[in-house]
């Protein structure tokens, strides 16, 4: 008997015969199909999700800047980099919304995944969750996952209208876009810059991931 059969057999014995394995399989398939929502906190139904998102992201130590159009993104990035006295080099993926940005002359940009040598990276978010200030990042050539983790400074551009109230809202959108049961290879839900409290419970920002997370919300 295979390990698989042995484990499933023991589970079936343990659950007992209140329902047959077939009845259980049907019940499970039905729940997956219906994916019922449970309790959604009232705060997730905020009438201006962007406002709540900005507040919660700031609470998680991210910095948030709201701009009116994609034309203003370059200036916002530039300002953030100067504020922190960073070299004016950045890397981003193939995302068209980032590729179309006209960067100031004193900045150099490169494209593709990070090999760990970049100080600053820019990604575009798929969406965001207002209730906890969480960014939703999808993997792929447009926004390689390495850009989310390897640089000390991560700048994320987010479209205001992609901010939704709850996590559940995000999954609804994702199913509509990709089809039921389908997911990007990696979805990173990011809430603030990386941190650790492993030494005497003292919270320090900038563990293995970014030290700074700067979010630019485009409200066009």
């Amino acid at each position: 008997m295979s390990a698989r059969q042995a484990i499933l057999g023991r589970i079936r014995d343990a659950i007992g015969d209140a329902a047959t394995p077939e009845a259980r399989a049907t019940a499970a398939a039905r729940r997956v199909e219906a994916h019922p929502r449970g309790t959604i906190p009232k705060q997730a139904r905020h009438n201006r999700p962007v406002v709540l998102f900005a507040k919660k992201a700031a609470k998680a130590e991210a910095t948030v800047r709201r701009v009116k159009s994609y034309e203003e993104v370059a200036e916002a990035v530039h300002r953030f980099m100067r504020e922190h006295e960073l070299p004016l080099n950045l890397r981003h993926g193939d995302d068209e919304r980032l590729a179309n940005i006209v960067w100031p002359d004193d900045m150099t940009t490169s494209r593709g995944p990070s090999d760990g040598s970049d100080l600053t990276t820019v990604s575009h978010a798929e969406g965001a969750v207002a209730e906890s200030g969480t960014l939703i990042m999808g993997s792929g050539p447009d926004n390689p996952t390495t850009l989310n983790f390897l640089a000390e400074n991560h700048i994320v551009v987010l479209r205001g209208r992609d901010v939704q109230g709850s996590y559940e809202d995000i999954w609804t959108t994702m199913r509509r876009r990709l089809g039921k049961g389908a997911m990007p290879r990696t979805v990173n839900m990011i809430t603030g810059p990386s941190r650790s409290a492993d030494i005497e419970q003292k919270l320090i920002l900038g563990a293995h991931g970014p030290l700074r997370l700067h979010i630019i919300v485009v409200e066009d």
């Binding site: 919660k56 609470k59 998680a60 209730e131 906890s132 200030g133 969480t134 792929g140 997911m183 990007p184 290879r185 990696t186 979805v187 990173n188 839900m189 990011i190 809430t191 603030g192 810059p193 990386s194 941190r195 991931g209």
Partner: peptide
């Protein structure tokens, strides 16, 4: 915390 910093969903290998 309301949410940990990284909640990461991995579905399969490189595509």
């Amino acid at each position: 915390q309301e949410m940990s910093v990284y909640t990461t969903l991995s579905t399969g290998p490189k595509r």
